[in-house]
Design a protein around this nucleic acid. Structure first.
Length: 277
DNA sequence: TAACAGGGACGTA
DNA sequence: TACGTCCCTGTT
């Protein structure tokens, strides 16, 4: 039995439940004992939160190499909230309910696949699709404590398979999108390393070349993988919220370079926050 | 039982 | 720019 090292931190703008429910990560879930697990690429993490105290069950090395950045812990999210117009009661309220939401720095390929699947789909089903995808095409892995899980399959795993094969993972018509995009990545037509190095506008332009990636999906990938905080994905829920509360348009100028964070606050508020009360 | 909609994008007009 | 279509499944 390997000894489990723990990293403990305190943070007022970190709420693992809110992050999990915010719909940016589909391989994060609450376990029976109230702790959470996160899987990214082939890495596994378990964490637990009590109030503002969070415990990450991983080594110091994993913490420094992966999870500190993954949870964007070098960024002060209260500073974003402070920028909200004090007269904008809607946004203040949304941020107040979602103050533990953060923008994760997730794997690029994983986000491309996840958001290809997300279209005309709901979070619960997206989770299930990705689970099936990992079980069938990922590698079986084992943590030191004996937890079994599957890694996220790389693009090379989908090369040479029929376009409709992923229908067996419930992807439906999106199967073709994932297979064709995987092939484009595998044969170098789409260069993930370059995309990761580009500024927002150019990364988005490249992502839009992928079959199945449209405006909204490209913005999600830019925000949740590339951490372009000026990305602002507009889906049907955000659209409705903007129509109701920002008839003159969202004040992008005022919130330069943090629109994505505010978008997530609004999204969480619209989908989750309102149900609590 | 039978619609229906759920964090869109593509192809065609 | 607009609209039908794509596939699956939990919900009503």
């Amino acid at each position: 039995m390997g000894r489990v090292s723990v990293i403990r931190i305190e943070n007022d703008n970190f709420n693992i439940r809110q992050i999990c429910d915010s719909g940016q990560c589909f391989r994060m879930k609450e376990l029976q004992d109230g702790s959470y697990e996160v899987i990214s690429r082939d890495r596994y993490l378990r964490l637990r939160q009590e109030g503002r105290k969070i415990s990450f069950y991983c080594s110091r090395e994993e913490w420094e190499e992966i999870w500190f950045d993954y949870f964007d812990l070098g960024t002060n999210y209260q500073a974003f909230i402070s920028r909200i117009n004090p007269r904008d009661s809607y946004l203040l309220n949304a941020a107040g309910q979602a103050e533990g939401v953060r923008i994760l720095k997730q794997d690029l390929w994983e986000m491309i696949v996840s958001f290809l699947i997300s279209q005309q789909n709901n979070i619960k089903r997206i989770r299930h699709c990705i689970e099936l995808l990992c079980e069938k095409y990922g590698d079986p892995c084992l943590t030191e404590e004996g937890v079994r899980y599957f890694s996220f399959p790389g693009p090379e795993r989908f090369v040479g398979i029929p376009q409709d094969e992923l229908m067996s993972c419930n992807l439906g018509y999106r199967s073709k999108y994932v297979v064709l995009t995987a092939q484009a990545v595998a044969d170098g037509q789409v260069d993930l390393a370059k995309i990761a190095s580009y500024p927002h506008w150019r990364a988005k332009k490249e992502l839009l070349r992928c079959f199945g990636v449209g405006e909204k999906v490209a913005e999600c990938i830019c925000l949740f993988a590339l951490h372009h905080l000026d990305a602002f994905p507009v889906d049907t829920h955000i659209r409705q919220a903007l129509d109701r509360h920002y008839k003159r348009g969202f004040p992008h100028r005022r919130y330069k370079d943090c629109q994505g964070v505010l978008q997530q606050y609004i999204f969480y508020h619209e989908l989750v926050g309102k149900k609590d009360k």
